[in-house]
Design a protein around this nucleic acid. Structure first.
Ligand code: MN
Ligand code: MN
Ligand code: MN
Ligand code: MN
Lengths: 220, 220
DNA sequence: AAAATTTGTTAGATTCGTCTAACTTTATAC
DNA sequence: GTATAAAGTTAGACGAATCTAACAAATTTT
């Protein structure tokens, strides 16, 4: 019982936008996939029949265990692909998402096993998101948002989220990359913009909008 | 005006099974794609409307110049992918076709340009088939079939055709590969099977069915 | 608590790619 | 040259995935 490319994209979206308790609203899913709500409803009934989604009228959507596993495996292929494209094909982290969005649907265990092996079994993708294991399980480390840190903190940039190509190009322009050590010099109370120093740069300013997309680990 | 995956597969099949004059019968295409004739007819009308195919009732099908170009570009992606999988990912030549069949539909010029570059602009795929250029043009060298050679000939194995996975595994089992120098020792008149020597092997027997799938260049 | 808004469902239509059944045209056999 | 077979087309149906319009339920505002 194989899922269509379309079904795979619904599963993946359900997985990605689930809140802490695993719930997703129809409107949210509709917006994410840019597909009208009635279409989403009918697809949810279909996925419910395939035991991939828990569906009850007017209740929030939830992936079943089976659905969560299948979604995880697609996301695994997506993130392995992104890592492969960056590490083995020298594409920029801002270029790989759209390609991975397509390659994640390739049916070929050996192809992705080979990628995994060539990359030496990576744990995270080029944006710092964890790569689900071969059972579809994934765990996020508990990073903080840079926007939640305080002046004086020293942190390491560990992941970037809500990564559009434009956002990643902004980071490229500022010479920022995963693993970068950052010192927070000050925070502007008015707009929560911050001033940081890193590498040879001494007073770069980041808007709050940027800081909310940067996940960091505090360094002792 | 982008073509669907389905349309791409029709174009590719038309390209691949065209005879010398570029003609293809509906029944042939139907058989190749494993799609019933009425479906093929209606798709041909659709492709004719898109100026990709010349279609007249009861006449053989022919790709237009435009159709031939688009088909060539898909086959280019297919063969580049096969080469990449063999050269850069260490898959066997018997394993790559099914993966390439899917990846050929990926929309991302940069992805395939990168492959091309990493492979140093290869001219042929792992089975010896020529890779169409970036305009979709392709030329076959004029190889002979091994089945058309004579006892005493010395030849180089240059390409393999009608390559199923089983056939390629047979060649693996016999230690045969592209570029191999082969001496024809004798030909059995009854069934046209041949005895050859190559590398350290001194009397391997190949059936006519095998020889018809091996393309060779005669060595002076 | 009534009104207004947002969220979600139902019903019915549309496009794509496929099929089967029935018919027509072309090619082959006798 | 007629009969038979093969190849090709037409007509009508169907499932998948989408949409719009209309309606219903749930939530928020007043
Ligand atoms: Mn991505
Ligand atoms: Mn996708
Ligand atoms: Mn191939
Ligand atoms: Mn294909």
């Amino acid at each position: 019982m194989i899922n269509s490319l379309t079904e795979e994209n619904y599963l993946k979206a359900l997985f990605n936008i689930a809140n802490q308790s695993g719930e997703v609203n129809v409107a949210e899913l509709s917006k994410t996939l840019d597909i009208k709500m009635p279409t989403v409803t009918s697809m949810m009934k279909k996925l419910a029949k395939k035991k991939l989604v828990h569906y009850e009228s007017y209740k929030p959507l939830r992936l079943t265990e089976k659905g969560r596993k299948e979604a995880g495996l697609i996301i695994r292929k997506h993130r392995l692909t992104e890592m492969f494209l960056v590490e083995k094909m020298n594409l920029g982290w801002e270029d790989v998402h759209d390609i991975a969005e397509q390659i994640e649907h390739i049916q070929s265990p050996v192809f992705f096993e080979k990628m995994d092996e060539m990359l030496d079994y990576p744990k995270v993708d080029p944006h710092g998101s964890p790569i689900p294991d071969s059972k579809g399980k994934v765990v996020w480390k508990d990073y903080s948002k840079l926007s939640d840190c305080e002046a004086g903190d020293t942190v390491r940039l560990s992941a970037v989220i809500k990564t559009t190509s434009e956002f990643l190009k902004l980071l490229n322009g500022k010479g920022m990359y995963l693993g970068l050590k950052i010192k927070i010099k000050s925070i502007e109370p008015f707009d929560k913009s911050i001033v940081i120093s890193y590498d040879k740069r001494n007073a770069e300013v980041l808007s709050n909008l940027v800081c909310e997309r940067l996940l960091v680990e505090k360094i002792v």
